[in-house]
Nucleic acid binder design. Structure first.
Lengths: 340, 340
DNA sequence: CTGAAAGCGCTAACAC
DNA sequence: GTGTTAGCGCTTTCAG
């Protein structure tokens, strides 16, 4: 018997803990659950052919031991050479907080599954410039040419957004807009303004629709609308400033993102309008650095990234198409108050 | 002989290419250079004990074959359990384009070396909240408590910035400021404004100093200064707008970052000041999305990240302290012109 | 349904 | 100075 094999054997047999530098490995789980590492792997990855009771036991011990599979090992072993392309819609900025946060989480979860991202630029024709084994489409918009493109290529893909008959996942933007409206209305605000941007973007459009429907249901009329050049704080600032300088004085503002909202906050301050006593402001996203003090609609970016990876793995394994809509919720902080 | 061993042997002996899915591995290089994989590894990693001629040959074949070491394998094999902590100075934003770009490049290069980052938050005392095997200190500022802290801990560390007697790397911010001044002066501008932010930050301070020194040398007086609240476009916008509305009318502006510069561009446009015919604007960084049309001082973020990793590895191996200052250069685009 | 072991690409310790 | 090989943690045949 080769020395290596014996060493491994010893490890599995002996009660002494392995010297893995504190890290819990698949061997530890196997030993604790009294099965082989192969079984642990199968159980954990949902591969068929494991007795339900065994699977349960393995899963339980894994949780108990706080087992966290090593991504390098997984990647090395998988080596299924799946190149996952992350495609961002043409003209969509990539250095925005939301995108950065999503990308970080997404690569993390992907790496945990032993897969690797490949950031693929979108050409001016709106299509990904390189082929890949699988696609993740970000920045969905109506008549997105990338969907047909991925289907034509016959590649598995996941759309972050929504589209009939396609594997997709997205936050419930429409419900978020509704939540914002209801919150503002409940506080007695009737002079409402919606600050938005990039109307062709599915996310912004959905948020606006949800907000508008709720407002119309309550007040029998639409709110005012200010469309910023893009989603940055500066654009939000300029949009609100122009609106206020034109003489309007809303008491409730729903900004379609925290970034826009943060620009609105500054504009209000610069024009001597106090928040929340003069005007209430609701944002969207609940981003770490920009929206920390805002009343906002929270969406779970980490969950979004995680589910994207799940759907992607399902796609890779040829499973049935499934779509997800992730819940959002209102986080009430200091930027909204009752109408005076 | 175990089957695995034989298979490996066969691979090395036979002329047939390995079925590695197209990927060039260390085996391919070894075979082509007529040495063993061990020697290839040593040669490539600069470990001593390789004949100069052999090393040369290995390096050459590696380049020729476009060999790109697999990071997962490297990481798995290394497993030196080095936890590299990336520490950002307290109060320093992490969602800024510069930081995001640096972080991406840095993790990439680190992963290529088989190391792994661990993003460590900085407490309100200005110190990293967790211990680690090595530190990278970002956002250097005078009297940075983290330097003494890392030294006290006896941990190897690299400062992105500069400090006597410490392993550090930074772009030549001062030279960049000088370059901006000289460019503006050469175009005939004498009514100058410097838009800066966060004066305690080493980078901003150095850029300001370089600019000021060059201006004083030429005009025997300092330029005007506008300090923005932070480094964002919105802050740059407000700073310049306030300055212009107060009655000043500079013909040459040096913004300490592309983000600030982009805000300045918008402010100028909003106030009917044309760029570059009425005013010339120079930025700093040459960031992909924000500074694409700006005349700016270019710094190489990828090189900065790469050298940081190099210094870190040197630190880990206990080599002599060495410090780097990376060159910057002027990129002339459409936002500067001769004074009318 | 489960265990054993090959092998992913690489580094380092050990032989010669 | 160079070759050989154990082993990093995991997935996946292949036997039973």
């Amino acid at each position: 018997m080769a020395r290596a094999a014996r060493a491994r054997q010893d490890r599995q047999r002996s009660a002494a803990p392995r010297a893995t530098g504190g890290r819990v490995t698949i061997h530890d789980v196997a030993q604790a659950a009294n099965v082989s590492i192969g079984t642990v792997s199968r159980a954990l990855n949902g591969r068929g052919g494991v007795h339900p009771e065994t699977r349960r036991r393995v899963l339980a011990t894994a949780t108990e031991l706080a087992y966290d599979p090593d991504r390098a090992a997984r990647e090395l072993s998988n080596r299924r050479s799946v190149a996952v392309a992350l495609s961002v819609a043409h003209g969509y900025p990539r250095l925005t907080p939301f995108f950065v946060l999503f990308l970080q989480r997404f690569s993390d979860h992907l790496a945990d599954s032993g897969l690797r991202v490949q950031d693929v630029p979108t050409g001016s024709d709106g299509l990904p410039e390189r082929d890949a084994d699988a696609f993740v489409l970000l920045g969905a918009h109506p008549d997105d040419p990338r969907i047909a493109h991925a289907e034509r290529l016959g590649r598995p893909f996941v759309l972050v957004g929504h589209h009939p008959g396609v594997r997709c996942v997205a936050p419930d933007d429409e419900a978020g807009g509704r939540l914002a409206a209801e919150h503002l209305l409940r506080l007695g605000h009737e002079s409402l303004l919606h600050v938005s941007a990039m109307p062709h973007s599915q996310a912004y459009a959905d948020r606006a629709r949800g907000f508008d429907e709720a407002v119309r249901a309550a007040l029998q009329r639409s709110s005012a609308l200010a469309v910023a050049d893009d989603g940055t704080p500066l654009s939000g600032y300029r949009a609100l400033r122009a609106h206020l300088e034109a003489g309007s004085c809303p008491t409730g503002i729903f900004a379609a993102s925290d970034e826009l909202a943060s620009g609105c906050m500054t504009a209000a301050a610069d024009l001597g309008v106090r928040v929340p006593s003069d005007v209430s402001i609701v944002g969207f996203d609940d981003l770490p650095e920009v929206g920390t003090r805002l009343t906002t609609i929270r969406q779970d970016i980490d969950a979004l990234a995680r589910e994207t990876v799940t759907l992607l793995r399902e796609a890779l394994q040829g499973e049935r198409i499934r779509s997800l809509r992730l819940p959002v919720s209102l986080v009430s902080r200091g930027t909204t108050a009752e109408r005076r």
